[in-house]
């Protein structure tokens, strides 16, 4: 099996689906000759031609609207928003239009669109590049939201996203693009959307996370193991819809839970997970479900980001509170 980085796994998934389905179109700013600013589309224009893989003029709202229109013509658009911080420019196309296509036409049209976009902190970008804005998407009924944490998951989830007949927002954490390699089968495979993955089994505490914070959570679990705590780490992989079954099963097993997210604390994914757990499993809980998240400021100017971003220490500290409650 090949050892690939996450960005290579993403390119592989795009190549697989461009091959499988002639309706798949890949487009966005600099995705053609340049292969994308992170090289996610490297070589794809050469392989599949300018009809299938093409550069757009510089306009995020244009890219979103184009995806809606192409979907109406039966295509399966896979546009790229160069950085997810630019999503504000395309909010109407996503939250006002794409997400409502099936609903407002009473099911006569649907939007099999997958919007890919890099996001995430820790790589010293300028403003509006690193923000975790997934909550803007999870507050939009009608879209699914996927955030992979490993190369293996990235490929299988992206193939599923592209094949899905509803719009999927597929967010790629920049720090994970090249920071490590993982085993990725050369053949095609899918990972169902809406299914979490238990990345580490444990019996004393459940840490629920997604994206880059899965790795921080796994490191924290190792630290806690040294002190005799057995920690389970659940990687959500899809943050809308949530895999309630896996979350609740884990919480019922451990009786203690916490949620770790990179985004600011206010109105986040973690708050939503906590609400689901308390509504469904309060009698299994030995302690309040706590959150680890970034503070409620705008994403920081890059000099302060290492302190601002949640890390292993914050997770261990909060885990101990939950474990000793």
């Amino acid at each position: 099996m090949a050892q690939l980085t996450m960005i290579q796994a993403i390119t592989e998934a795009l190549r697989t689906e461009l091959k499988n389905d002639e309706n798949v179109l890949v487009f966005g700013e600099d995705v053609g000759v340049n292969g994308g600013v992170f090289r996610a589309t490297e070589g794809l224009q050469k392989e599949f031609g300018e009809d299938r893989v093409f550069d757009t003029p510089l306009a995020e709202s244009g890219i979103g609207g184009l995806a809606v229109g192409l979907a109406l013509q039966g295509f399966r658009p896979v546009p790229e928003i160069q950085f997810f911080g630019f999503v504000y420019e395309v909010m109407d196309s996503i939250s006002g239009q794409l997400s409502r296509m099936r609903f407002r036409t009473g099911g006569s049209f649907n939007a099999p669109v997958t919007i890919r976009s890099p996001f995430g902190g820790g790589v010293h970008t300028p403003e509006m590049h690193a923000d975790s804005l997934e909550l803007l998407m999870t507050s939009t009924p009608g879209v699914k939201v996927v955030i992979p944490s490993t190369p293996y998951d990235a490929k299988g989830l992206l193939i599923s996203a592209i094949r899905d007949n509803d719009p999927v927002i597929y967010l790629e954490h920049m720090k994970l693009y090249r920071s490590f390699r993982g085993e990725v089968p050369e053949e095609e495979y899918t990972i169902p959307l809406g299914k979490a993955d238990v990345k580490r089994e444990g019996t004393d505490l459940t840490i629920i996370s997604y994206g880059a914070m899965v790795h921080e959570s796994l490191k924290a679990a190792e630290e806690l193991e040294k002190e005799g705590h057995s920690v389970e780490v659940v990687d959500l992989r899809t943050i809308q819809p949530l895999d309630i079954e896996t979350i609740i099963a884990s919480v019922e097993k451990t009786g203690r839970a916490m949620v770790v997210q990179e985004a600011q604390k206010q109105a986040g994914i973690a708050a939503n997970v906590v609400a689901e757990i308390t509504e469904r499993a309060i009698l299994s809980l030995e302690a309040p479900v706590l959150r680890v998240a970034a503070p409620d400021t705008v994403y920081p100017f890059s000099q302060a980001e290492t302190v601002w971003l949640p890390g292993v220490k914050d997770i261990v500290e909060t885990a101990k509170k939950v474990l000793t409650f």
């Binding site: 206010q266 503070p295 409620d296 400021t297 705008v298 920081p300 100017f301 302060a304 302190v307 601002w308």
Partner: peptide
Amino acid sequence: PKQKVTDLINIMYEENPYNLDEQLAYY
């Protein structure tokens, strides 16, 4: 001076709401 998260918390609003007050203490 080295930029701090606490500096950033204090330039969010004219007056900090409860969450930022708590986070100010934490950071």
